[in-house]
Each structure stands twice: as C-alpha cells, then as structure tokens.
Simulated assay, not measured.
Amino acid sequence: MEQFTVARRPLYEVKANLFKGLAHPVRVRVLEVLSVHPGISVTELMADTGMEASHLSQHLAVLRRHNLVVAERRASQVFYSLAYPQVADLLIVSRALLAEILETTQRHLASTVTS
C-alpha cells in the first residue's frame, strides 16, 4: 500500500523525501564510509563515526527507511552497504557542487574587499 501511495505522489515530493534521508551529517558520513567500504559491520561504523550503538542505529534506520542502505545479518553481526551505487555518485556530485559554491563565494568576497 505504501509503494502505491509513493507512486502517486509527484516526483518532486519523492525527491524531497529522499533528501530528508540525507539531512543529517552523521547519515552523510555513514554513506561516505559505505561508499568506500561496502559491507562494513555496525561495529566498524561505530568506530569510524565515533557514535554510540543506539544513536548510530537510529540513523541507520532512517537510511534504510529511505532506501539508501541495505542490511545483511551474518551470524551475530549486521553489515551495511549502499542500496544503490548511485548513492556514491550523488555524494561525489554534491562534493563537487559544494566546492564550486565555496569557490564562487570566495571570489565574490575577494572582489568586494578589493573594490
């Protein structure tokens, strides 16, 4: 039923919902780690992010709910991977966009100082 509802929503709303999944620095960091180390355990993610298990678990749940990561249980551990390789591409594009925005802002500031 939920997927039927999503399918009937305008694409811009669905996109906005995807970005809600990205709207926290910890979740972005987790996605960056997973883009470099696919299939990493929760224990390793905790060490990399410096987060406690309960807080990390909440962020991973949000990422799962927004279909950005997938979990796989192996014995007593859970391992996470990006749900789609395009998530890594999205991170690369956002980094390039932010670098360009920063460069443009610095140029504008420099030009106002020298004027």
Rank of each mutant, 00 (worst) to 15 (best):
S35E: 01
L56T: 09
L31D: 01
V42I: 13
L98F: 04
V113M: 14
L90G: 03
L82C: 02
L98K: 07
Y84Q: 10
R107N: 09
A110T: 07
E32N: 05
E100C: 01
Q86D: 09
R64A: 03
V70W: 01
L98H: 07
M51C: 13
H24M: 05
K15Y: 11
E2F: 15
H24P: 03
S111D: 11
A61P: 01
R29D: 06
S111W: 14
V42Q: 13
L45T: 07
G39N: 12
S35R: 02
A110W: 07
L68I: 06
L34P: 04
H108T: 08
A99M: 04
L56D: 02
K20F: 15
F4D: 02
V93D: 08
R27A: 04
H37R: 10
R29F: 07
T43G: 04
V113D: 07
S81C: 10
Q58G: 06
S41E: 06
R9P: 00
A53L: 12
R65S: 05
R8W: 05
T43I: 12
T49I: 09
E103Y: 05
P38D: 02
L82M: 03
S41T: 15
I40Q: 10
T112A: 08
T114Y: 14
A47D: 12
H66A: 03
M1I: 08
H66L: 01
A96P: 01
A88D: 04
A61T: 09
M51T: 02
L11Q: 10
R8A: 10
V70Y: 04
S94V: 06
S111A: 14
R27H: 04
L11F: 12
L102H: 05
V28E: 12
P85A: 14
R8I: 02
E2C: 04
Q77W: 05
